[in-house]
Design a protein around this nucleic acid. Structure first.
Lengths: 165, 165
DNA sequence: TGTTGTTTTGTTATACTATTACAGTTAAAC
DNA sequence: GTTTAACTGTAATAGTATAACAAAACAACA
């Protein structure tokens, strides 16, 4: 069997793992980085991150908003969008373009060019990081790449099983 | 200089080229494939493709719709969305997730895993095709990849020049 | 501690993107 | 030419996102 020439991190989110630890560590990481960099982890922002962290399923901004509203943290779209922008901007969450939705970052702290494995059925999202970025290979003819969106849509193992049945 | 391990087609759309020929060939290809495969290239669909082909700038569905409406080809959203779905489904156009917009396919006929080079300023879109798909490298832990979205956002050469000035 | 400047929040309004559902029409197959 | 399937027209509505501005909270520092 040929070894692929790109190594990656395991796609957290689609494989079994200690989710409580996963949440705690992501939250702690975020707090630490905010403290270090003078960012303000406000109640809405923290709660938004916690909500995203509850599962690895991508959530729409309005789903997040509904949760925030239920807790009295604001019920107007900008509340959710601002919190999500903050989280995405600082790498605590990612926007999944294919779904117009958001997931918490599974690999906080790592500098990465992430590949998202998106289940088209359950919207669970795994995050794998390419160790060797492909952006370096496509900066052709003077185009200057600033950000990469790499999303693989398909079926997660659980949904494959359900489909087979 | 190290040679990249992935070869690709030149990113049509961002480099100078004979655009009239580019349009004519794309249109001809589409007609031919429709004839071969029993697809119906109706007036709305043909005109939609022509509109997309006018430039390599990504257009929103409502921009396309406005053009169609001006020519009496329909002025309700489903008209544009249906034509665009048809074109995308059969590979005559692509959806750019990052922009919620559409571009004509620059490499019709080629089986491909396309990489889109999207200028964040002018929304021109180049299309490069990876000869060696990266999807084969990320199907880990039982996730079954069905479609890839690979989009590079950045600045095209023209906009880099304008920004420098 | 009070003042000042900056960031964040609250709120209204609105813009943009997309689909469902169903009726009517056109084209293809037989 | 009738049947069937595909496409089009239209209304209604759902879903996603932002602009603009006022008010409050916070940070920095006199």
């Amino acid at each position: 069997m040929k070894k692929p020439d790109r190594q990656e991190m395991p796609p957290v989110g689609l494989v079994a793992h200690d989710h409580a630890a996963c949440v705690a560590s992501a939250l702690a990481q975020a707090e630490t980085r905010c403290a270090q960099e003078g960012l303000r982890m406000t109640p809405v922002r923290r709660r938004t991150l916690e909500i995203l962290l509850e599962s690895h399923v991508a959530m729409g901004a309005y789903d997040v908003l509904a949760r925030l509203a239920a807790e009295g943290l604001g019920d107007k779209p900008p509340v959710a969008y601002r919190a999500l922008s903050f989280l995405v901007e600082h790498g605590f969450a990612h926007r999944i373009e294919k779904l117009n939705a958001f997931v918490a970052c599974s690999h906080p702290g790592e500098s990465h060019e992430a590949v998202f494995l998106i289940c088209r059925k359950c919207h669970k999202v795994g995050e794998a990081n390419l160790a060797q970025p492909i952006s370096g290979e496509i900066g052709h003819d003077g185009f200057r790449v600033e950000r990469m969106v790499i999303e693989a849509e398909g079926l997660c193992p659980d949904c494959q099983r359900l489909e087979a049945a």
